[in-house]
Design a protein around this nucleic acid. Structure first.
Lengths: 338, 338
DNA sequence: GTGAAAGCGCTAACAC
DNA sequence: GTGTTAGCGCTTTCAC
């Protein structure tokens, strides 16, 4: 049995397809009389507009895609959770893609144009891509980038001020009296921009306090996972002169580090204070709860969607801007105790 | 500047649109000579097929939607992470929807027909919906339901054997010598089927061991979150006769319960043993690590996608079946110590 | 305010 | 093997 079409409705109501379309979309003015006729016919036939046809006629899909490296990373899950309602409110459905941080996958996504796909715009949280990779993308694709990038002027970038946030985090450790502070998560290579900004903050806080930086206390990790934190912390504890505090580049890293410390019979924060980054829900319930930098995820989501909608709606190129969401330092048990 | 169309390619290559379509889709036989001509034209023009037009012509969108209650719940995030690659492999993109467990939102999703939307099928993990609500859905929508439901024969259901798994979990607590076992997470109302199956397993394990069930040790919670676990555990500790073990209906609940125990100065598992459910990544890194029931999420994802693809591809109604993925008990520190 | 008709760009009978 | 052509179901310019 064929689905009923707009044409069927028009016939039953004794009007033209044009009028039905007007009624359905709330366009133009339609007499109350005809509107009612049409609506009755729609109800009677159980008519539902065919989105596929509408998409073709409109040349847009009403969908945006959100691309994240990993979905099971709490930070991205929480971010996505915030983006979806924001997008829905703006009338867009959300497609989700995960890249596993694979640069090839990431470039193929940004490289392809909007038209080739079924989304009108993209919110992209890159991991494996360096700034250069990003600029080879299809310029016709409305794009908002999250995280630690800098806009080259052709897309928008939404993030918090990582250097400032990191400086605050390390400043907090200094304030509570720690002097041998380690950092876990550095990534001194092109795709590690996020990490490098945090490292910069680490140095800035030391400089501000007149403290020297022990370079050997800056530990690199391939990713920002628990296991990376656990491993790096173990390496730090193996040293003759372990640190009395650690700035971890994510809450997961912090969680892993704490795990190692407790397993070694050390106390947090008495022996080693720990501060993380991201404010994921986990950090609020572990033992100890994890001090952290909390980015305003709701704001990030709102701003990202808002800018993307603006880009998708504009026929002329929109200049890319840098947008900053708020962040704040949340001291918890892992630095200030119980 | 207009995007190049299939027609443009045909013109440049000196062939008909039909032939270009054949080349693009790998259909039918095309002479190597013409294929090459066409491919050269495609490359030269930078042609990309318009998915929107293709969708309309095909009458399908090539998308499936995955509906979960909450995205920031690790279990669902991990499940989604497994579903996305499985779907992509089958040639489908994944739309994501979260319902916040809102029954109205959930029914509106299942109630609307496939054609009204831009997905060809749905993988649905309901929370607020009872069995009855589910059966009012549009029968034309290919549907696979996850979690603890029973198929009414018009959709497939994929899940693990919850009663068996719960019985094993509680059996494990009994095996390690616990006798006063509590359960946190019961939901004795229509939408709480998941919880009720776990409670049934709780009873079954007691029965199998010849132990009586203390009904007052079965604690209900509105959701399966950390805060619910923390609160319920606190209530249990307020009693004159607290339990020596707790079966938590999710790892998050377990995590919350452990938090409360540690905060009260109790030891896990020495004073109270804890077992959870879901095997989320968190549970493998906390302190103590959480014993749990581990559902084979990869298998669930694979089976769900496979069945959905089968449904979407069939013109005649496919009888709904019950499909079971494997699960296994994973003892960790929270029951067997360090 | 409403109708007629021309697309949107692709697919797939149907011929040759 | 390839060309011709008629849709897929909607939107929308243009008249009236």
């Amino acid at each position: 049995m064929r689905e009923t079409t707009l044409r069927d409705v028009a016939e039953l109501a004794g009007v033209s397809p044009r009028t039905v379309s007007n009624v359905v979309n709330g366009y133009a003015k339609v007499t109350d009389a005809t509107r009612e006729k049409v609506e009755r016919a729609i109800a009677q036939l159980g008519y539902r507009p065919n989105v596929l046809a509408r998409n073709l006629a409109n040349g847009r899909s009403g969908q945006i895609v959100v691309v994240v490296p990993y979905l099971d990373t709490p930070y991205f899950a929480e971010l996505l959770q915030a983006i979806i309602p924001a997008a829905r409110e703006a009338g867009y459905n959300v497609l989700v893609d995960q890249t596993d941080g694979d640069p090839a996958h990431e470039s193929s996504l940004v490289g392809r144009g909007a038209r080739g796909l079924l989304f009108d715009g993209m919110i992209f949280s890159p991991l494996g891509l360096s700034q250069d990779d990003l600029s080879v993308r299809d310029p016709a694709l409305p794009l908002v980038v999250l995280g630690e990038r800098t806009s080259d002027g052709t897309f928008d970038h939404v993030g918090i001020d990582d250097v400032a946030a990191s400086t605050e985090a390390v400043g907090h450790l200094i304030e509570i009296g720690r002097r041998r502070i380690a950092a876990i998560g550095d990534q001194p290579y092109p795709t590690g921009e996020a990490a490098q900004l945090r490292t910069r903050g680490f140095r800035a806080a030391h400089a501000a306090a007149g403290l020297p930086v022990d370079e050997s206390l800056i530990i690199g990790t391939a990713r920002f996972n628990r296991i990376d934190g656990a491993t790096a912390m173990a390496a730090l504890l193996d040293r003759a002169d372990p640190p009395d505090a650690v700035f971890c580049y994510s809450d997961l890293v912090a969680s892993g580090a704490i795990h190692t410390l407790l397993a070694h019979g050390l106390r947090v924060p008495e022996d080693v204070a720990i501060i993380g980054y991201d404010d994921i829900e986990d950090g609020r319930y572990g033992r100890p709860t994890i001090s952290t930098i909390s980015p305003d995820k709701g704001a990030i989501a709102r701003i990202a969607v808002e800018r993307l909608v603006l880009r998708m709606g504009s026929s002329t190129p929109v200049p890319g801007v840098e947008l900053r969401a708020a962040h704040r330092l949340i001291p918890r048990q892992s630095t200030i105790g119980f």
